[in-house]
Design a protein around this nucleic acid. Sequence first.
DNA 1: CTCTTTGCAAATTTTTTGCATGCGC
DNA 2: GCGCATGCAAAAAATTTGCAAAGAG
Lengths: 157, 157
Amino acid sequence: MSLSNQLESGKELRARVDAFKALCRSRALRLTEQRLEIFRTLAQSKAHPSAEAVFAAVRKKLPNISLDTVYRTLASMEEAGVVFRVGLSTKARFDADLTPHYHFVCMNCGEVYDVLPQPGAPALVVPQHISQFGEVKNVNLQFRGICNRCRAAAEQK
Amino acid sequence: MSLSNQLESGKELRARVDAFKALCRSRALRLTEQRLEIFRTLAQSKAHPSAEAVFAAVRKKLPNISLDTVYRTLASMEEAGVVFRVGLSTKARFDADLTPHYHFVCMNCGEVYDVLPQPGAPALVVPQHISQFGEVKNVNLQFRGICNRCRAAAEQK
DNA sequence: CTCTTTGCAAATTTTTTGCATGCGC
DNA sequence: GCGCATGCAAAAAATTTGCAAAGAG
């Protein structure tokens, strides 16, 4: 086993869970046992678990939890900014343009927009220590948020 | 319709298709009508189409093409470095660590590793003109390649 | 002629949804 | 108690796979 799955120290974990509780209160998210346990699981793991993996782990503590609760909870936590999703929440999309550019991805509708590097901005640096993980073939920089169209639609409601 | 779906100019498109042909030859990828049409479709679009969308577009030219050919072709093109995949090719994975860090994602096994910013490297710049698209809520920088474990496994074969 | 690639169909995997019940506030 | 959140089951969406036939080099 590598170090990457080790637990956070108890102190650090408790602090993060407390911060999570406060954040839930501030966003009017109900603090259920399931949410707490899902967050705790995620905060304890460095393995970037999938929804299935979170489900399997949480189940040990809460045997009755259902997979769809995990999905729903992860989605609402992402929206609240409490957890980060590696990858997209929508299906894969493709781009044949290999010149350096980035993407803006709408977290609501999934739309993808090309973003050119800011002129004069320093170039992206690939950390040297990345070779400990593997060989980098390409770099993916994406900015996520809510697109203007979705925001306008939400405001109108 | 926005500008984002407009076609490349004919000249530019032809150049990219020619480059694609050369690349196929160099990688011993057979140059089939389907591959050519899929690439052409992608190179013509600025909409970052999904596999389904590519399928629908290519179908107009090649009515007999099947969806799984599109999937297979896009995957092999990605592997050859001809097209870029926005999002992950694997299921979603989650991270509760919100301190600034990046990820190395293995394109083969899907494993995700934490990558710390290189000390002293210039900070990531969010381009100012991004506001034309929407409001940025978070930034996702990932390096993709083949992890050392997968590479070792491949070499051994 | 050989070996990759395709099309078809079916299966898997991943994620979402409707609805009645339950629990946090 | 009110209304969001959950569990269950079923469905939908996205992607993959096995196999025989077709086509590229």
